[in-house]
């Protein structure tokens, strides 16, 4: 077992943020979220944080670990700290802090709704994802016209928006996840073309590619935004 120090961001209501430290005994194979839960269970029941599935599906436990955006349920302690070291846990950037490690992801959800982010989509809509996914042969299709569908990779965790330096100074910028959701759908709908080609759309991105670097679901939003720019240009120049 390792003994490490968790340095945790605390903030309740309108009080100024501060940090509290907790000594935690952990198995290095455990995950950062496990340590946060231990603090809550045995040290301070007032610590607020969000979690649900513990296997990178729900996107609830996004936090900054030592300054870097991580999905804490899949971030092993041994990968971010050494025995006897200190691990800083903070809420995501570019969202309002509700309490301690919890942020209000409402702005992201509203943008995802505005871009009509699909709950499921056909494999053929997403060639990048579909290329390496073989349809499950043992599941028969009801008709020849039917398509295989899947859940989108994006788990709406908000990590990409937290890492985006442009979102830091422009909360109205649609941001990586919503723009990636437009790219997945294509630009056949005029309202999506208008959103992508707006002041807060693809042209606001400054190509830092931090979103792609931190995305825990390999959505590669940076690449999708660049592809969306190409699509928007082609539409406007009537090449597509």
């Amino acid at each position: 077992m390792w003994k490490i120090t968790y340095r945790v961001h605390r903030q309740k209501g309108n009080e100024p943020p501060h940090y509290e430290t907790f000594q935690v005994e952990v198995d290095p194979e455990e995950y950062v979220l496990d340590g946060v839960e231990k603090i809550w269970a045995s040290e301070d029941r007032s610590l607020t944080f969000r979690h649900a599935c513990h296997h990178s599906t729900c996107g609830a436990c996004g936090m900054r670990v030592n300054g870097v955006e991580k999905l804490t349920c899949i971030t092993k302690i041994k990968d971010v700290v050494q025995d006897g070291g200190t691990l800083t846990v903070e809420p995501l950037r570019n969202f309002p802090v509700v309490s301690d490690l919890v942020v209000d992801l409402g702005p992201l959800y509203r943008k995802m709704a505005a871009v009509q982010a699909p709950a499921v989509h056909a494999l053929s809509m997403t060639p990048w994802e579909g290329q390496n996914i073989a349809p499950p042969a043992d599941i028969p299709m009801r008709s020849a016209d039917e398509e295989y569908i899947r859940l989108p990779d994006c788990i709406e965790c908000g990590i990409c928006i937290s890492a985006c330096p442009v979102a830091a100074t422009d909360p109205e910028y649609f941001g990586p996840a919503p723009l990636a959701a437009i790219q997945i759908q294509g630009l056949d709908k005029p309202e999506l073309l208008a959103l992508a080609d707006s002041q807060e759309g693809v042209w606001r991105c400054h190509s830092a590619f931090e979103c792609s670097a931190v995305c825990p679901s390999n959505v590669d939003p940076g690449r999708r935004i660049m592809d969306l720019r190409r699509q928007v240009s082609a539409k406007r120049l009537k090449l597509a």
């Binding site: 309002p96 702005p107 830091a168 100074t169 909360p171 590619f209 931090e210 670097a213 931190v214």
Partner: peptide, 26 residues
Amino acid sequence: EPQKNDPKNLWDWFNPKGRNVGGWAF
């Protein structure tokens, strides 16, 4: 709610902590 062009957040444009290659380029 974060405010547009909040100078407090301008530091995030230059803060190298935790940035990746694309962030360094930016």
